[in-house]
């Protein structure tokens, strides 16, 4: 796996989305978003948010949709 932060986060987000892929689409999107919100630290979320804002290359549809709805990261 790449050690580039953005590529790694994309990979991880896709892994999570794949794990929930058997659920209905909306449930899978919600579960992916909740998981990332619950377990990723603010910097990781901010980084992936930047990536999504830049087009979200490499993200699966479920991961992308989940991340598009991720609440913005609060300042420390």
């Amino acid at each position: 796996m790449s050690h580039s932060t953005a590529e790694k986060l994309v990979y991880m987000a896709n892994q999570i989305a794949t794990a929930f892929a058997q659920q209905q689409h909306t449930a899978a999107v919600d579960a992916t978003r909740t998981h990332i919100r619950k377990f990723w630290d603010p910097r990781m979320r901010a980084k992936i948010a930047e990536h999504v804002a830049a087009g979200g290359e490499g993200l699966s549809p479920v991961a992308k949709e989940a991340l598009e709805g991720l609440p913005p990261v609060k300042a420390a």
Binding site: T5, K38, F39, W40, R43, M44, K74
Partner: peptide, 20 residues
């Protein structure tokens, strides 16, 4: 207390390499 989750060990190494 901070209400945000922190870094997990592998994320710590990534963040260290990244410089944060």
């Amino acid at each position: 207390l901070d209400d945000e989750p922190g870094l997990r060990i592998p994320n710590m190494f990534d963040a260290a390499v990244e410089g944060t």
